[in-house]
Amino acid sequence: MAKAKNQKSLILLNDVSEAIKAEHLLKAKKLDIKVVAPPVEIRIGCDLAIETELLDSYEAKKILEAYKIKPIKIIPLSSTQLEPTDIIKKVDFGDYLMIKAGHMKLSFNKTTGEIVNISGGGCSDIPFLALRMVGNSLIKTEKPEDLGCTLCAYMLQKAYEEAVRSYRRV
């Protein structure tokens, strides 16, 4: 039976790190979700929440709890939430390809797959991610979604995923 659509709910989580993991888990379970900004009254400036169909919210909660992610709250929604930008661009520098996801940039060597630079962003995990990822292969490196905790890391993950896809096509 088709589910009633359009009635949305918002799953509030403790931090961006949890939201990144939640997105990954819920998409893997084929739930129709997207990451959005929390309501303005509870935002601190670097946070994410998960928007889902209201009818899916209980299932989503059970999935997350099975992975030890405990939502703070699930609230019904009637208005549209701000979403992270989904603009991805590529700039070809000959031997190197730069992937831009919003304000984050990741560049790699097209032949070896080595990550040669990470640029953009201003949250406190970006220098840490640069330390851990630059100089490593796209295929073997630790990922922003595993190490990062902020919205900049979330956008870097988008750039990283596109870089892997592009490298495999080269």
Binding site: L82, E83, M155
Partner: peptide, 20 residues
């Protein structure tokens, strides 16, 4: 430039939320 778009967007609380 991406951050300039963020400053221009009255709703965005972080550059990740700049409207497309």
């Amino acid at each position: 430039l991406g951050e300039m778009a963020f400053l221009a967007d009255p709703e965005a609380v972080h550059p990740a939320y700049v409207r497309n």
